[in-house]
Structure formats: C-alpha cells, structure tokens
Simulated assay, not measured.
Amino acid sequence: MADQNDKTTRQDRSSRDDRLKSALRENLKRRKAQARERAASADPSQDGDGSLDEGTAGET
C-alpha cells in the first residue's frame, strides 16, 4: 500500500513540476517580448523603418 501512495506522490510531483516548467517558459517568453518592445520604442536612434536617424547634426 505504501508503494502505491509513493507512486502517486511521484506522479503528482512530476505533473506539478511539468506545469511549473511550462508556466515559467511562458512567463519568460512574455517578459522577453515586453523587453524587446520597450527597447524598440525607447531607441530614438532608429526610425520606424529600422534605418539610422542621423538627426540634425551637420545641418547649417
């Protein structure tokens, strides 16, 4: 009887670990996407098309 309870506990723990791993992966993906969005919107050196903005330096 103790063996059956031990197997169930291991299965429950394994299932829980799998759920946690999946949740952590999804959280990491979401955080990386948010960081990329913030970096893209906070980078004033690039235009919307990705080309470098030379600004007004050198204009007279």
Rank of each mutant, 00 (worst) to 15 (best):
E54C: 09
D47C: 02
E37I: 01
Q4V: 15
A33G: 12
A23Q: 06
D6G: 06
D53K: 00
R19L: 11
D12F: 10
R36N: 10
A2K: 08
K21Y: 09
L24V: 00
L52V: 02
A33K: 11
D6V: 02
L52G: 00
L52S: 01
A23T: 13
S45F: 08
M1V: 08
R31L: 15
R19G: 12
Q4R: 11
S22E: 13
T56V: 09
A23M: 11
D53F: 03
A2D: 11
L52Q: 01
D6E: 09
A57L: 14
R30C: 10
S14I: 10
G50A: 04
G48P: 01
D12K: 14
D47M: 01
D53R: 00
G55A: 08
K7W: 12
N5V: 03
D6S: 11
T9L: 15
A40I: 07
L28T: 02
Q4K: 08
G55N: 03
D17M: 13
L20A: 03
M1S: 12
L52T: 02
K29C: 07
M1R: 12
D6Y: 02
R10Q: 09
A40P: 00
S15K: 10
G50Q: 00
G58F: 09
G55V: 01
Q46R: 09
Q46N: 07
T56M: 15
D49Y: 01
S15N: 12
E59Q: 09
D43P: 00
